[in-house]
Design a protein around this nucleic acid. Structure first.
Lengths: 216, 216
DNA sequence: TAATAAATTTAGACAAGTCTAAATTTCCAT
DNA sequence: ATGGAAATTTAGACTTGTCTAAATTTATTA
């Protein structure tokens, strides 16, 4: 169908499109660990295949068909992550690299059966929504803890930083998906926060507060 | 680690080595759906990496390290096939292509956990033995039904032809792994056989008898 | 608004893996 | 034992995806 490289470009464009409407060559190069010149080449090929919209010097966006493909890849990635954590008992910081490979297994029937096997999960182990067979997914309102004030509370529901280091830190602090937290104090000096969670006080930096997402 | 193409070459050499000690360029080209010239090129690269033994015009064989890699790929292929049939309820004739992709997922930890998740199966859905984490596997004595005589019996335990067409035929005749069969008659004219199986008489051609394997 | 910096694209090259056509080696039958 | 057929290898070319270096376009800022 599409090559491995093409799939990775579409996926990366999809992710970057969530926060930018026209994704730049440099953004893609950074995310894909390649050079801007290589991105330009590839982007031309994807445009020829009508998978993206591209105008020289103006960045790219996904076409309808490109987005459809990207969503199927995201679906596979998140379902396999769920499988690895729920069935094979990997930790949430261990599954990303494996899912990066597994997301390219092509059979749609396979992924649909995997979905059913796991009872149609709605969120992956990091709280990201899993698109269904048609590409639709829940969009609950997630906001960084940093955006709420003292005495406000919420439920940990996602992360903005998916790095193993951050996930391990959260695990150690028991700040995991589903936990209820309440902000008890904000330190004016560095904007760090003290949270009430698991019947304990936990002090988190501004950076952590920016990368940990809750629903209210 | 190794490229996709390299892994496929090693796997093919492994399979052909089961019946030939020096695998020829043409054999490989046929199995890999490529041309002899391409095989020669690739075989040189694998020899440079010490994964195979190769002398011009003399065919190839796996080195110890090459065999180790090949066995890990075979292990992954068969475990994923088992997963697809036992957990996702695919039919035995549907899983080969999917497993061809899945066998290249690299994580050893993943495949070992998959193995455990399924309770360390010893045979895949077609009766082929699954190597364990160290590459060791059962070698039970399998022989084609064609090699036994009237009134002799055995248990269906494997196939020599893995094509979907053959597997579907067997499924329809209920000649599946584990079934007990007895030869009640051999037709001299075309060497076809009449079997007693599932309390029924089943007439199979010589070709089928050659491709269906039993243990006695 | 002109000049400089930053971003992007073009040009030309390279590695992996494949191909066709031609050359070489091996094998087999006489 | 040798001549031709079959198998294999070599030579040269192509595609995909990448790279560096140079050229071009866009953005910034003075």
């Amino acid at each position: 169908m599409n090559t491995l490289a093409e799939e990775n470009y579409l996926k990366s464009i999809y992710h970057l499109s969530l926060t930018t409407q026209n994704v730049s060559t440099n953004q893609l190069a950074a995310l894909l660990n390649t050079k801007a010149a290589s991105v330009t080449d590839m982007v031309k090929k994807l445009a020829d295949k009508q998978l993206i919209n591209y105008a020289r010097y103006q960045g790219v966006s996904l076409s309808a068909s490109g987005e459809k493909i990207a969503l199927q890849i995201v679906r596979k990635h998140r379902l396999w992550e769920y499988f690895l954590v729920e069935k094979l008992h990997f930790k949430w910081d261990e599954v990303h690299e494996m899912a990066e490979e597994m997301e390219h297994i092509s059979s749609k029937e396979l992924v649909d059966r995997l979905d059913k096997f796991m009872n149609f999960p709605k969120y992956d182990p990091h709280g990201d929504p899993i698109p269904d067979s048609d590409g639709n997914f829940n969009t609950h309102e997630l906001k960084p803890i940093a955006t709420i004030g003292v005495n406000e509370s919420g439920i940990i529901s996602g992360v903005r930083d998916h790095s193993a280091g951050f996930l391990q830190y959260l695990e150690k602090q028991q700040l995991t998906i589903g936990k209820k937290i309440k902000v008890t104090e904000i330190i004016g000096y560095d904007n760090s926060m003290i949270l009430q969670a698991n019947d304990k006080q936990i002090h988190i930096s501004r950076e952590v507060a920016n990368n940990l997402l809750i629903v209210i």
